[in-house]
């Protein structure tokens, strides 16, 4: 790749990053440019992924080799597009029905196994090692089982939560909040690492190698906002006058 293209890439990356960050100030034309470019690029990328990862290997190539059975699911998939033609939109129901049917068939047994059976087993299994467990490990296992029951009770909709039942439900909420707090901290840390990544890139693009892309773009935007604020203020005063 030539040096010019690397510089252009740097300016583009720095520019789009700063344009998107500018939304923190307010909605503005730079953000709109980045937003629409992102939208278009995202759709274009997904389209080529669909063509190269789905259409060619899963339909075109098998049909070319004489595996004609793939035509049946392809037609069912295409039937969904009939939604756009009101007169024949009923055809799409066949595709939808099939999708809902196989989706349920896949999801129900898997859900029963993983969300139901495994959860019970996972909660009670530690007690099978009771003889070799330390007092703290026993307390830990009992606490998890107690928390699981209380949290489940919070999501029990068939009885009114009042009196002693409300207390059990409230304990469930405390367990939930402890989890949510931990999850929040964990995710925020992950987001910060993404932010550092963007700042690191902006720092890289601020170097002489990229002709000070970050500084120029930032300065340009600040000038734009100042001029805009000045003119917007003047036009407001003119209207008031």
């Amino acid at each position: 790749m030539s040096e010019t293209w690397i510089i252009i890439g740097g300016w583009l990356a720095a520019g789009l990053t700063i344009f998107l960050f500018s939304f923190l100030y307010k909605d503005n034309p730079f953000f709109k440019i980045a937003e629409h470019l992102y939208l278009g690029a995202g759709m274009g990328w997904l389209f080529q992924v669909s063509v190269t990862n789905v259409w060619i290997p899963k339909i075109w190539e098998p049909v070319s080799k004489g595996e004609l059975l793939v035509i049946i699911p392809s037609i069912m998939g295409l039937s969904l597009l009939t939604q756009f033609i009101p007169k024949i939109s009923w055809i799409s129901r066949y595709g939808f029905t099939f999708m809902m049917g196989y989706g349920s068939g896949l999801a129900i047994p898997a859900g029963l196994s993983t969300d139901f059976m495994s959860q019970i087993e996972g909660t009670i299994k530690p007690f099978s090692l009771l003889a070799s467990m330390s007092p703290f490990a026993i307390f830990n296992s009992a606490l998890i089982a107690f928390g699981a029951i209380c949290v489940l009770f919070y999501f029990f909709f068939s009885v009114e939560h009042k009196g002693h039942l409300k207390k059990v439900s409230n304990v469930g909420i405390y367990f939930l909040m402890i989890y949510f707090g931990a999850a929040f901290g964990n995710t925020v840390m992950a987001r910060f690492s993404l932010l550092y990544g963007r700042f690191d890139d902006l720092y890289t693009f601020s170097g002489a190698k990229y002709l000070y892309a970050t500084q120029f773009i930032l300065t340009g935007m600040v000038i734009y906002f100042l001029v805009y604020a000045l003119f917007a203020g003047r036009s407001k005063n003119a209207i008031k006058a």
């Binding site: 998107l20 980045a34 937003e35 992102y38 939208l39 995202g42 759709m43 990328w45 997904l46």
Partner: peptide, 15 residues
């Protein structure tokens, strides 16, 4: 329909 790409969808809905 907005976009089938997660963050371009988010950016657009934010807009």
């Amino acid at each position: 329909f907005v976009s089938a790409d997660q963050f371009s969808y988010a950016a657009s809905v934010d807009g």
